[in-house]
Write a protein that binds this DNA or RNA. Structure first.
Lengths: 220, 220
DNA sequence: GGTTAAAAACATACGGCGTATATATTTAGC
DNA sequence: GCTAAATATATACGCCGTATGTTTTTAACC
């Protein structure tokens, strides 16, 4: 282990950058999980002293906000001029897909207050079609918040950061179903085959359709 | 600072218990916030060595699960025999109210997988009325998951653990509204007065009614 | 071209954290 | 009475975030 250079690196040298820090942090999360993220681990992977990160990031929370921005940047926006309902469905699905590209990192976006500049574009992309569909601004905001709450809640469950009795994988499902039937709770037992099994995709589509159907039934 | 007793305490002495550990942890969260919770802090408040907690709790995560149980135990269940829709509304409101009794602790419940024994009762209380209303078990489970996802998402926003542009308090609202109008994004600017302001209560009721209306429109 | 302020890296160190391990004391059951 | 279990403390390890200070190079200015 040779001692590392100690001053500002010479002109041509590869240098640290905010982008390198953020992408390395995201890679670390993908590989080792959210809880493995530490300033020291990120620095080690970059071959750099931990304190060097602070030249590009205010603190650890700031770093995580940056990673959140990386994730949100992966949302793909539908083309202009589609039917409002089609645009909204596409957006919701694209948001979900973007989060599921990095499931273990998703809670960074979903459970954090983010600076306006990083969420304004998605908001505009949702409110636009809602107004175009004839919803009042007030109702459009209510609708945005209801669908976003549902989507966040669904995604958190999907990445195992929410309470649920459902499980994935056949052997687990069968075992859980048996446990539920053995509780003696009548409704729980009756619904056990469905409570035990989880199908994120269809649950997301079910709730999304439910909300959008309701919103577009009367466009006040 | 006299040296603390070192062995098992004598018979009559006040002794530690799981319940004391959990309630002290909850009190600490209420006073100092979630991030202030550490085994050492809880132990200090109990006048006890940190390692003593491990006689009652497997590890820190287990302690937090226990606190989650404390919170869920504060749900008040509606009486039997009400109209299904009335029961479901009461339950959703009661769940929300229970979480808002300890807003800073709520994320422990909302962003964690919990053991079945602690969530079975609420589940039964939701699925029961849904089946009573004529929903199929499959649809009842979908309905449970959709409303729960929405409720969790709404509550996380309410306790500042979710992305949003809305703010509370008049001066903040006015400032944020100005910022939104200055973005140049047309829909965002048009909806700025509503985007800037947050009204958790009415947003919760709006989404809840939207979901339940849809669910009860056709009872398949 | 020399001077100087800013930039970008490293070095050290502090106080906190969760908890593994070992030990002491008392109790409860046989 | 003996012994195992229960309940407490003591010590220590390896992490963590980051405050503070130092070194080296660059870039801007005269």
């Amino acid at each position: 282990m040779t001692a590392a250079r100690r001053g500002r690196p010479p002109a041509g040298a590869e240098t640290l950058s905010l982008h390198r820090v953020l992408t390395e942090a995201l890679a670390l999360i993908d590989e080792k999980g959210l809880e493995a993220v530490s300033m020291r681990q990120v620095a080690t992977r970059l071959g750099v002293n931990p304190m060097s990160l602070y030249n590009h990031v205010q603190d650890k929370d700031d770093l995580l906000k940056g990673v959140a921005g990386l994730l949100l940047a992966k949302i793909e926006y539908p083309e202009e001029g589609l039917e409002p309902r089609v645009s909204l469905e596409a957006l919701a699905r694209s948001f979900r897909a973007a989060m599921l590209l990095h499931p273990t990192a998703a809670p960074i976006v979903l459970t954090r207050q983010l600076p306006p500049e990083v969420i304004l574009r998605p908001i505009e992309a949702v409110v636009g079609p809602m107004l175009a569909a004839g919803l009042s601004p007030q109702r459009a905001v209510h609708a945005l918040r209801a669908t976003l709450a549902f989507t966040i809640g669904t995604l958190l469950r999907e990445v195992n950061v929410a309470p649920t009795v459902g499980v994935l994988g056949e052997p687990n499902v069968a075992r859980r179903q048996g446990e539920l039937e053995a509780t003696g709770l009548p409704a729980t037992a009756a619904a056990a085959p469905y409570l035990a099994r989880m199908d994120h995709e269809s649950e997301f589509e079910f709730g999304l359709a439910l909300l959008l159907d309701g919103l577009f039934r009367f466009r006040t």
